[in-house]
Amino acid sequence: MLSYTLKRLLQAIPTLLIVITISFFLMRIAPGGPFDGERQLPPEIEANLEAAYHLDEPLPMQYLRYMGNLLQGDFGPSFKYKDFSVSELILQGFPVSLEIGGLAILLALLLGLPLGVIAAIRRNSAIDYAVMGTALAGIAIPNFVIAPILALVFGVLLAWLPAGGWNGGAWPNLVLPVIALSIQQIAYIARMMRASMIEVLGSHYIRTARAKGLSESQVILRHAIRPALLPVTSYLGPAIAGIITGSVVIEQIFGIPGIGRYFVQGALNRDYTLVMGTVVFYGALIVLMNLLVDLAYSALDPQIRYD
């Protein structure tokens, strides 16, 4: 297992290199540049700006320059956030996104898994319909609808919690964004858990366990849940990478200083260095999370081996 892990970590290097190279050229070939805005700049000034960021060099040269700097751990200065380097922006914002996203995932697992299991056990009962109906509503209502409603109701009308702001991560400021971020995940996880539980509960293996006289709760807790977690685990790999890197909607509506906005706004602003920084960071997370998922498979099902 250790050698497998090491092998996978080594493979991450070429994987990321491919991601970086494709992304670099994708981004640079796309129309629109960092200085295309409502105020059209005179050609003299645009030339100065391009020279300041080496955008006047041939593209392959810029690529080599970028890779050279990257090897030294230098992601370069952000185009838009000029007083900060890309590394500073990501390092300052990531802990915030990780905190909100981590709590959201935790909440989603703590609620989603049991709800899915219960719905599966009490299949086609009122509980099942209630849980799945709620889950479907959670999936159907996008978070750009949920988040402003939460802020309005709990932040303004009831005034129980702040309507926004980070406030150094004080807990009242965390509640609404974490809920808004987790609703959809709870629903996803509950739906998937229910489906795979039903699958497992119907299996020959569980029937055997029941036939051996084990109580229903023993059957479920000891034999059914672990294999049923497999699809949820597959889903969680990329999902976690996405959630802990923040959500632009949640950050804008609640004023959270995370890194989610850099993914969308960096691209919209053509903040080339920032986009590349987010790509590298996200790519590394994806690779890491999918590795963890593959390792988790063996823990959930000892028969899964990698050779």
Binding site: S23, L26, A30, A267
Partner: peptide
């Protein structure tokens, strides 16, 4: 699976804009 990792990591927005171009 490494190909899948790569597809996950590419910036979707630029992919879309280039498709359009």
């Amino acid at each position: 699976m490494r190909f899948v990792d790569i597809m996950y990591s590419l910036p979707f927005m630029f992919l879309v804009i280039l498709l359009m171009v």
